[in-house]
Simulated scan of single mutants.
Amino acid sequence: MSPWSPSEFEGAVVAVTGAAQGIGRSIALAFAAQGANVAVIDVQEAAAQAVVREIEAGGGRAVAVACDVSKRESVRAAVGAVTDSLGGIRVLISNAGITRPAMIRKMTDEQWDQVVGVHLNASFYWLQEVVEPMIEAGGGRIIFTSSSTAQNGSIGQVNYAAAKSGMLGLMRSAAKELGRYNILVNAVAPAALTDMTRTVMTDPKFGADPSKSTLRRFAEPEEIAPAYLFLASSASSYMTGQVLSVDGGSMMVR
């Protein structure tokens, strides 16, 4: 049996933030294809609704939930909306992200605060809001979308690299604290070409270079999603506090 067969995820409630496009959309579609009930969470409600229609057209079940993940009250409302519509969240994937690239000497406080808010603060808000229900349910999975940038750094993205690095500290600490409750907490560190990353990955001034990957190319979002299926499945039942790099080998190329 496949470790992520429909029988394992059938009816499970999976919440994916930033699911209207890019990696988040691919994750939502992948879980829906395996029988999960998916909450498509995004600040762009119309785009989230389009993903829901795509899932429903394939015979799956999903709901769109509008949420500004950088705001605590919006996250709390979103968790309530998901629970009311689908039931308690079994798998949380904190994936929402933005980029606001600028060189250090030109980066504004607003650019710093926006990126830290959407990546790091949001991950904490979601973590805190789902923990109690997961404990009451006997366990769950929490998966953060970090980045190869957290480990490699990136020219023009001190805000993004700092937020993604902070997310890894959050993940490891949460894994240690929540393991006793059968809540496994991990992260995926992808390097994929999406609408969000296109600018920094294709503009030479930011130093992105597909030759730094042993595969000599950037990943497509669909190549990243299976890592989340693995970390949410029973195949990873003894993994927590780990970073799964899906970066074409860039971490080993210096």
Rank of each mutant, 00 (worst) to 15 (best):
residue 1 M to S: 15
residue 1 M to H: 13
residue 3 P to A: 12
residue 3 P to K: 12
residue 8 E to W: 06
residue 14 V to T: 04
residue 21 Q to I: 15
residue 22 G to D: 04
residue 25 R to Q: 08
residue 26 S to H: 01
residue 30 A to H: 02
residue 33 A to Y: 07
residue 37 N to L: 14
residue 41 I to M: 10
residue 41 I to S: 03
residue 45 E to T: 13
residue 49 Q to E: 14
residue 49 Q to L: 05
residue 50 A to L: 14
residue 53 R to G: 06
residue 55 I to W: 13
residue 63 V to C: 01
residue 66 A to V: 14
residue 66 A to L: 06
residue 68 D to C: 09
residue 70 S to A: 03
residue 73 E to M: 09
residue 73 E to V: 12
residue 73 E to D: 14
residue 74 S to I: 04
residue 75 V to K: 08
residue 78 A to D: 03
residue 79 V to L: 01
residue 82 V to I: 02
residue 84 D to S: 05
residue 85 S to P: 03
residue 89 I to M: 03
residue 89 I to F: 04
residue 90 R to N: 10
residue 93 I to K: 07
residue 97 G to R: 05
residue 98 I to L: 11
residue 101 P to H: 02
residue 101 P to I: 09
residue 103 M to K: 08
residue 104 I to P: 07
residue 107 M to R: 00
residue 107 M to H: 04
residue 109 D to Y: 02
residue 111 Q to S: 14
residue 113 D to C: 02
residue 113 D to K: 10
residue 114 Q to L: 09
residue 114 Q to I: 04
residue 115 V to D: 02
residue 121 N to P: 08
residue 123 S to P: 15
residue 123 S to H: 15
residue 131 V to P: 15
residue 134 M to P: 12
residue 136 E to W: 07
residue 136 E to P: 06
residue 139 G to P: 04
residue 139 G to H: 03
residue 141 R to P: 04
residue 142 I to V: 04
residue 144 F to L: 12
residue 144 F to A: 09
residue 145 T to V: 07
residue 146 S to V: 00
residue 150 A to I: 07
residue 153 G to Y: 14
residue 154 S to P: 09
residue 156 G to K: 05
residue 157 Q to V: 00
residue 158 V to L: 15
residue 164 K to A: 07
residue 164 K to W: 08
residue 165 S to R: 11
residue 168 L to M: 12
residue 170 L to I: 05
residue 171 M to L: 13
residue 172 R to S: 15
residue 172 R to A: 14
residue 173 S to R: 14
residue 176 K to H: 12
residue 181 Y to T: 13
residue 181 Y to I: 15
residue 183 I to E: 12
residue 185 V to W: 05
residue 185 V to L: 05
residue 186 N to E: 11
residue 192 A to G: 08
residue 193 L to A: 09
residue 195 D to T: 12
residue 199 T to W: 11
residue 199 T to V: 13
residue 201 M to H: 06
residue 203 D to P: 02
residue 205 K to Q: 08
residue 206 F to E: 06
residue 207 G to I: 03
residue 209 D to Y: 13
residue 210 P to N: 10
residue 211 S to P: 15
residue 212 K to E: 10
residue 213 S to Y: 09
residue 215 L to A: 02
residue 222 E to L: 01
residue 226 P to E: 02
residue 228 Y to A: 01
residue 232 A to R: 03
residue 232 A to V: 03
residue 232 A to K: 02
residue 233 S to H: 06
residue 234 S to R: 07
residue 244 L to G: 00
residue 246 V to D: 01
residue 247 D to N: 08
residue 249 G to A: 00
residue 250 S to N: 05
residue 251 M to P: 02
residue 252 M to W: 13
residue 253 V to L: 09
